[in-house]
Write a protein that binds this DNA or RNA. Structure first.
Length: 882
DNA sequence: TTCCTCACG
DNA sequence: ACGTACGTGAGGAAA
């Protein structure tokens, strides 16, 4: 069998990778872009050339014979940036884990080691491949050695062997050395013959074949070339020597030691996880045959459940059930389940068809049976139209993974989780169903394919559970998972299933009203502009405002003029068109996003809107709402606020709206233990007035309304880590004055300053922040070398504990409110959450009880040194509950 | 798909 | 000096 030896120039490739890839860091803030690029290149090379032997050569710090011979060698090179330097050791570690040989030796460069090893390889009958980004290595190409030079970063390589070099450059690989001796090399600071460049160099080499021969025949040369050579004979010889790669470095090498093959896969997987290379885990199998994945899959036994009764006994005996439902696409209120897949041991997986769901009901609703799954909220909702409430949802791998790393850029898809924890191949939804308009639905799949997929999903849940469980315990988030996030799955599922009633007629009326105003404004804008154009196009609008009307350009975006609200505000008094545009924008937004958007999504069966509440989106722990987003329904301006009139309570019901008063500032007071602020809350003082009196040094009863509203801006600004500049913009005051406000603030609330500093310090050290419920958020940006990114990281670090703790609090309140309503067997339902606000649709005869429950549970969700305060409002529409 | 804009807490 | 508030989702334009 023919042996293939790959030798990689470690320094060259890591450099290429470093400069080719954008900054990347792992969770701890270690920069990883060069390691990542190196590894992808390594995989590609192994994949393509299937080496039997391999080695990576590195430069040593010590001076080489070249430096000794020529002081100026490689002088003037920029120092290696620390961002790259710190990646060397982790890369070498990784290579060791792959059992890939490494070579380095004092006094020689990686090039020389490569030259030596490649010679040894050739002599022992190997096919040799050299991988580098340095064209000098072309001199080593031969009929037995292929030099692979990276192109386009590290994405591709170009192959050079003897024939291809001859064809391309019309000279032999070794003649490249002579050419470089003549031309010199700027990057290595090799002088060459002054005045001789590529053109003349190639001409001379073609004619005389070597530097020595040129010198011998110098008399035959003409003119200035002759003179240049004559005067620089020594320089040319030395340059050639510097450019020559040494092929007999004094190093003991036994080629057998370079054998490539076995390595401890678990160790590599661990390293990849540490480095955050989850996407590379899947490629591990491709470079070593990948029989491991097949084995796991072939273990699975997936079939139709014949003896349901016996299996139900198994489930009850074990007290646990791995479950995944498969549904047709359809209305949330209708029965759409095709199959339910269930398992108790993770390998014997059974499915039942829709007709038999009721037989399973007993264990599904049993509180004694723990349910394990992937996206359990979907299963809960799917079962709901069958009047089955999935009980005791114990562990959901998406939610666990969200707690483990809420800031991870990867999705919480099963395929990604399987890859991260098991290095197991599970298809992504896109791979299974395709994407875009051609995407298939579950109901289009062959049963066999479906079984295979769902089987793997269930098996993944089974396999991943103990690993995740351990990790969550270690970071002390088990309480958060089992007492807050998992119980919340049912709460959110039920909220989605219930939805909120919408007055469709009213919404239509609003639409007509808005469209009339839009038409009118449109015409007025065209009149002022003197032409018709698309006002919705920032590009076209920019041309009208800044070219045709010649208004001053306040700000530019990457692609053109900025026309956002802030800019328009500054242009208000320059042209009457501005106010029209501002108003036009507002109403177009209301009409398209809220009127048209909401109309399109009202469920025809019950006239309600069923938004999705997502538990695994935000980095801070908040819930998000989609299709539609019910968390950004207008409220600030009266025109927009009218939209809230269409969200109404059902017959014989009212909406009970409860919102926390200043929850984030209370959390801040508690976490920072700032006495002044705690005291203010204890005395039920108005916190903005209090802040005004502190910042502006006046008595509480002398605070003007302007001062109060400025203080409010300062309070909010602090929570976000706002700068003096930002505050000055908001308050339209000089930066200097804003700076004073902030300094005053931190002087008076001195513990808050300490707290903020401490948070950033801890976060920089640990890599993450924590909330009052121990929720974690990693902030790798804190270790960025990029000033802007690092500052953004600091602000995130200051804000996340506050926002995240507030999210913890309302989540606990939601779970407790939900439980209480259930316990008391009330028909009233929790239907909406907007970060610090809960809405219950309460039956009129239950309103008083509901009010009490909601206020009580919200105010007592957690125990802090500052009490929580909830405002209650009742109405028949969301608009009325203000 | 990306950018810009803007709605919310 | 840097560039300037955290966290979201959605619609429309343009590429």
């Amino acid at each position: 069998m023919n042996k293939r030896l790959i030798i990689i120039d470690g320094n060259s490739i890591i450099n290429r990778a470093f400069y080719a890839l954008p900054e990347m860091t792992n969770k701890e803030g270690l920069r990883t872009n060069a390691i990542y690029g190196f590894t992808t290149m390594l995989f590609k090379i192994i994949d393509t050339y299937k080496p039997t032997h391999m080695s990576v050569a590195f430069d040593r710090k010590a001076p080489t014979f070249r430096h000794l011979e020529f002081d100026e060698y490689k002088a003037g090179r920029k120092k290696m940036p620390d961002e790259l330097r710190e990646q060397f050791e982790p890369l070498k570690d990784l290579l060791d884990k792959f059992n890939i040989n490494r070579l380095e030796i004092d006094g020689y460069e990686a090039d020389d080691i490569i030259g030596t090893v490649s010679r040894l390889g050739e002599e022992n009958g190997y096919n040799v491949y050299i991988v580098t980004g340095d064209k000098d290595a072309i001199q080593l190409a031969s009929d037995k050695t292929t030099t692979l030079i990276t192109k386009k970063g590290v994405g591709e390589v170009e192959e050079y062997n003897f024939d291809s070099v001859m064809e391309k450059y019309e000279m032999t690989p070794t003649q490249f050395i002579d050419l470089k001796g003549l031309m010199g090399d700027k990057s290595d600071n090799i002088p060459g013959v002054p005045g001789i460049g590529e053109k003349t160099g190639i001409k001379l080499i073609k004619e005389y074949s070597s530097i020595e021969n040129i010198i011998e025949n110098v008399e035959n040369l003409k003119g200035s070339v002759k003179k240049k050579i004559e005067e620089n004979k020594e320089l040319a010889i030395m340059s050639k020597r510097l450019a020559t790669i040494i092929r007999d470095v004094p190093i003991e090498i036994n080629l057998d030691d370079l054998e490539y093959g076995d390595y401890d896969k678990d160790k590599v997987i661990e390293s990849f996880r540490n480095l955050g290379f989850t996407s590379l885990l899947s490629r591990l199998s491709s470079i070593d045959g990948g029989n491991e994945t097949e084995e796991i899959e072939s273990n699975l036994n997936i079939k139709k459940l014949e003896n349901i009764d016996a299996f139900i006994n198994d489930i009850k005996k074990e007290g646990k059930l791995y479950i995944d439902t498969v549904s047709r696409q359809g209305n949330i209120l209708e029965k759409n389940i095709i199959h339910i897949f269930i398992s108790v041991d993770g390998t014997n997986i059974y499915y039942i068809n829709e007709e038999e769901i009721n037989k399973l009901e007993e264990v599904l609703v049993s509180k004694e049976v723990k349910k394990f799954g992937y996206n359990l909220k979907e299963d809960y909702i799917a079962l709901r139209p069958y009047n089955i409430k999935l009980e005791n949802m114990h562990f959901d791998i998406t939610i666990a993974e969200y707690l483990i790393d809420s800031a991870s850029s990867t999705s919480y898809e099963c395929s990604a989780i399987a890859m991260k924890y098991l290095t197991k191949k599970v298809k992504s939804k896109e791979e299974l169903l395709g994407k875009g308009v051609k995407a298939k639905k579950y109901e289009d799949l062959e049963l066999e394919e479906l079984c295979d997929y769902i089987g793997k999903v269930i098996n993944t849940v089974y396999e991943v559970y103990p690993i995740m469980e351990k990790s969550i315990k270690e970071s002390e988030m088990d309480g958060l998972l089992y007492h807050v996030e998992m119980p919340l799955v049912e709460v959110l599922g039920e909220m989605e299933y219930q939805g909120i009633k919408v007055d469709k007629e009213k919404l239509h009326e609003l639409g007509i009203e808005f469209k009339t105003i839009i038409k009118k404004l449109e015409q007025e804008i065209y009149d002022i502009a003197g032409e018709e154009f698309n006002i919705n196009s920032p590009k076209q609008l920019g041309v009208i405002l800044f070219e045709k009307l010649e208004l001053p350009i306040i700000k530019k975006t990457k692609t053109g003029y900025s026309t956002n609200a802030e800019v328009l505000e500054k242009l208000r008094d320059k042209s009457p068109i501005i106010d029209k545009i501002t108003e036009y924008r507002q109403i177009v937004k209301l009409n398209s996003t809220y009127v048209e958007g909401l109309l399109a999504i009202i469920n025809p069966l019950d006239g309600r809107i069923h938004s999705s509440f997502n538990q695994t989106i935000t980095t801070t722990g908040r819930i998000s709402s989609t299709e539609p987003n019910l968390q950004n329904i207008p409220v600030k301006l009266e025109m927009g606020r009218n939209i809230r009139k269409v969200f109404i309570s059902d017959e014989s019901c009212s909406l009970v709206d409860a919102d926390y008063s200043q929850v984030e500032l209370r959390v801040l007071a508690h976490m920072s233990q700032d006495e002044t602020m705690i005291e203010a809350f204890k005395n039920n003082e108005d916190i903005h007035t209090k802040t005004a009196s502190q910042v502006f040094n006046v008595n509480m009863d002398e605070v003007t309304s302007k001062q109060r509203s400025d203080a409010k801006a300062v309070n909010f600004g602090i929570v976000y880590g706002k700068s003096d500049f930002g505050l000055s913009e908001d308050l339209h005051i000089p930066v200097k004055q804003a700076k004073e406000y902030i300094e005053n603030y931190f002087n008076k609330y001195s513990k808050i300053k300490d707290f903020m500093d401490k948070v950033v310090e801890n976060a920089t050290e640990n890599g993450y922040i924590t909330t009052i419920q121990n929720r974690r958020r990693y902030i790798p940006e804190l270790k960025s070398s990029n000033f802007m990114l690092r500052n953004a990281g600091k602000r995130a670090a200051m804000n996340a504990p506050i926002q995240g703790s507030a999210a913890d609090i309302i989540k606990i309140a939601m779970v407790n409110v939900y439980k209480k309503l259930e316990e008391r067997q009330l028909k009233s339902k929790l239907i909406l959450q907007v970060h610090d606000e809960l809405i219950v649709e309460a039956y009129d005869d239950e309103v008083e009880e509901v009010k009490k429950i909601v206020k009580d549970e919200m105010e007592n969700a957690v125990n802090m040194d500052v009490h929580l305060d909830v405002d209650l409002n009742i109405g028949n529409s969301w608009y009325e509950t203000k």
